[in-house]
Measured scan of single mutants.
Amino acid sequence: GAPPLPPYSAGGREVTMKKGDILTLLNSTNKDWWKVEVNDRQGFVPAAYVKKLDSGTGKELVLALYDYQEK
């Protein structure tokens, strides 16, 4: 199953993602919540729920390892 959710501390809205989604990583300075862009929406997802990909394009991409439903 998915890892436990860290307390929400990102101070911005969250976004929903599905397992297998490829998201653009915008900011990973917060260790628990990373800012991503998905379907032209920006928001935060739990860092433990995604994995960085080596895209080779200069853009940082992450793979959704679990479904996440915004609150």
Rank of each mutant, 00 (worst) to 15 (best):
D21A: 04
G58W: 07
W33N: 00
Y49F: 10
I22F: 05
T57H: 15
D21I: 04
L5V: 09
T29C: 09
P3G: 05
T24K: 10
L5G: 04
Y66K: 05
Q42V: 14
A10Q: 08
T24V: 15
K51P: 01
V38W: 07
L63N: 02
K52R: 12
V45D: 01
Y68Q: 01
V45P: 01
P3T: 05
K52C: 07
A47L: 02
G11K: 10
K19Q: 10
K59H: 10
L65W: 03
V50F: 04
L23M: 15
G58M: 08
D67N: 06
K19L: 05
Y68C: 02
D21R: 02
L26I: 14
E37I: 08
S9K: 14
V15R: 02
F44Q: 03
L23N: 01
P3K: 05
Q42K: 10
K19S: 06
G56R: 10
P3R: 05
Y49L: 07
W33R: 01
E37H: 05
Y68F: 15
P3C: 06
K59Y: 11
Y49Q: 03
G43S: 03
T24A: 11
F44S: 03
P7R: 10
V15E: 03
L65D: 02
R13L: 13
L53G: 03
K35R: 11
P4V: 08
K59D: 10
W33G: 00
A10L: 12
D54K: 10
L63P: 00
G12T: 06
A64D: 00
D32W: 15
K35E: 13
S9C: 12
G20V: 00
T57Q: 14
A47S: 14
G58D: 14
P7C: 12
A2M: 12
P46I: 03
D40C: 12
S9H: 15
P6Q: 01
G56S: 14
N39I: 13
Y49R: 05
R13C: 13
D21E: 13
P6R: 01
K71F: 11
P3L: 06
L25F: 03
G12H: 08
A48E: 11
Y8C: 13
N39M: 12
W33V: 01
G20M: 03
V38T: 15
Y49E: 02
V62F: 05
L53E: 04
Y49N: 03
E37P: 01
E37W: 05
N39K: 13
K51Y: 07
K52M: 12
T24L: 15
E14F: 08
L65Y: 03
D67T: 06
E60A: 13
V45A: 04
I22G: 00
K18W: 07
A47W: 01
L23S: 02
K19W: 04
G11I: 15
